[in-house]
Nucleic acid binder design. Structure first.
Lengths: 223, 223
DNA sequence: ACCTGAACACCGTTCAAGT
DNA sequence: ACCTGAACACCGTTCAAGT
């Protein structure tokens, strides 16, 4: 690597898009979305805030690159456990679920721009398996986006949780929502009241998988 | 109403949460999400920017109230055309689709906070019909949120379009995305390439309905 | 080519002061 | 009780100036 020590003598390991993205991910994971500031980023990288613009177009591009970085590693990891069709789809979906849970700021990013680079990797991964299931050409797009919607739904849920004060427990968060639901007018919201009882006890991951299975069942009934 | 003319003599029709929300919706619809500023809102209401805080907690609450206002009218309108089960679900879903298309800023709001007040009306409306379909207790939550995910998916797509420069045609927007997809490496993204061809010609509303139908088919196969 | 950091043009929100 | 509007504490982004 360090064949020639010509430039800067690795004092501060020259800035690069990759280093910037890594630093951004660190801040996002450690302190949340609101803490990612060009000033905070510059401080962490020991540089001026303007320097970042030499490598990254703007904040939106930075967030997209950070999301892409995570999603690329998800797909790489998932690709190793090669299974087929239904199982492959479930594997990709669960990989996404875990990634969104580990990095909730991804949720906001995905909901905000569902056609961004990073999500295309997932679209590709899922779409190929849907195709392999023998879904007719005309239903291919719809079936794949329906599965993607399950992921976007989870993303939206975690994006909302991300915007809470740091360190709020998931369980007390759900309990607070259930509490709010219970306070709604019973006559007007009977069904929501009914769900409120189930909300605190439920397993997010299990529910997510159930949604995916439901869509898979729908796909099965189509072909 | 104006039994006594005691106070302010209706010179400027005193501020109220409702007037503020209506003004906010006007700005959001006419000029987009980024144009909604407390300063712009204050100017439109011919008041000081601080006055708004007397009626609304903060910007997040204002956006939630605006979204709730729209969704309430969607549900009211949809409730009149009373149908049953599958058709009722499709009616609610299409009502939401049209609302999101007419007010794209709702998309960002729904994706950002899927448990907010406004969306509960939809959850209630859809959930009741799912219940009426005879879906077993254990699958009720999953089936309803799966349908909600279709709506959140559409919301996310329109939220992304909303953030574009004003006045971008939907068709040129889709063409631009298809163009980007075509430029991806064919070996790595064969499926996305395949979809790119369908993207410009497709009908959003039709695709949305197809997704809903897919989930409904899945629900049918469960019970 | 790449980096610095002050400066610019904004925000949401607060709050003493008014009526 | 309700409103005013200046002030505060931030932002993302730009850009002359440096190396």
């Amino acid at each position: 690597m360090a064949l020639s020590t010509k430039r800067t003598d690795r004092r501060t390991e020259a800035l690069s898009k990759e280093r910037i993205v890594e630093a951004a991910i660190h801040i996002l994971d450690a302190e949340g979305e609101r803490a990612l500031t060009f000033r905070a980023l510059a401080t962490r990288l020991a540089t001026g805030s303007g320097a970042i613009y030499w490598h990254v177009a703007d904040k939106q591009a930075l967030l997209a690159a950070a999301t892409d970085h995570i999603l690329a590693s998800v797909m790489a990891e998932v690709a190793e456990r090669s299974t087929l069709n239904h199982d492959a789809i479930r594997t990709v979906a669960l990989g996404m679920f875990d990634a969104i849970e580990a990095h909730p700021w991804i949720g906001a990013q995905l909901s905000g721009d569902p056609w961004q680079q990073g999500l295309l990797r997932i679209l590709e991964g899922i779409g190929r398996q849907v195709q392999a299931l023998g879904v007719p050409e005309s239903a291919l797009f719809n079936a794949t986006t329906a599965l993607l919607n399950c992921i976007l739904g989870v993303a939206a849920q975690h994006a909302a949780a991300e915007r809470l004060p740091r360190g709020t427990e998931r369980s007390v968060y759900l309990a607070a929502i259930a509490e709010r639901w219970t306070q709604l007018d019973l006559a007007e919201y009977p069904f929501v009241h009914h769900l409120a009882a189930q909300l605190p006890g439920h397993d997010d991951r299990e529910q997510f998988l159930a949604g995916v299975n439901l869509v898979l069942a729908g796909i099965e009934s189509i072909r």
